[in-house]
């Protein structure tokens, strides 16, 4: 009995430790780089209200996807050998739809909060548009990487449940802020 517990402990420890250490370095570096981007984003008033919510939602959609893929791989209904079957395409469609719908919602709520608190803000269409465009771009990238990470770790004999969510959290934060920065830069014209 005890040896079963200990072998699980050992596998979980060995597989999560490298990801946790890597995520810590990634998050500290991201903090330094993203700080600079966030300062530029201040140039478009009202946008800063959006960012924590966008990052939280990216994390939610991605961790749910990672959790579903982990279960599906263990159940044998998905994998590199199964290709783009209906189970996988349904997951991709759902993740993209949820990203698009929630991005519009966050943009709209952020606009209303800005109005209610009298925070200076760019227009409704601008805020919702930046949120939607950057949300869809981040989602496409993130869903692709999530599938690659979980499928590949499973094929290599690692447990995707141990790896996918921690690996994607840091990548998701970086993607989220970078795409908002890119889209907002095009909108505000301060990059070009």
């Amino acid at each position: 009995m005890k040896s079963v517990v200990l072998s699980i402990t050992s596998k979980v420890f060995r597989e999560t430790l490298p990801v946790v250490l890597g995520a810590t370095i990634g998050e500290l570096l991201a903090g330094l780089v993203l700080g600079g981007m966030k300062e530029s984003l201040m140039l478009l008033p009202g946008l800063i209200v959006l960012i924590p919510a966008v990052l939280d939602l990216r994390g939610c959609i991605s961790s749910a996807l990672g959790s579903r893929l982990g279960s599906a791989l263990h159940l044998g209904v998905m994998g590199w050998d199964k290709g783009l079957n209906t189970e996988l395409t349904s997951n991709i469609q759902a993740a993209l739809f949820l990203s698009g719908a929630t991005s519009v919602f966050v943009g709209a709520v952020a606009y209303m909060v800005n109005m209610a608190l009298k925070i200076p803000t760019i227009g409704f269409i601008g805020l919702v548009g930046i949120s939607f465009a950057s949300g869809i771009m981040a989602a496409v990238t993130q869903v692709t990487i999530t599938i690659i990470v979980s499928f590949t770790s499973y094929r290599r004999g690692l447990d995707p449940d141990n790896i996918t969510i921690p690996a994607m959290a840091t990548i998701g934060d970086i993607l989220g802020v970078t795409y908002i920065f890119l889209v907002a830069s095009l909108y505000g014209g301060f990059l070009v």
Partner: peptide, 30 residues
Amino acid sequence: MSEKYTARRIIMESLPLLLAVAILSIISGQ
């Protein structure tokens, strides 16, 4: 088992939670 993975089911189950998260994190950001 394939019933677990329809886009419709994932969306219907996830959307209320995500909308709540959106509102909560905007408020907690303030």
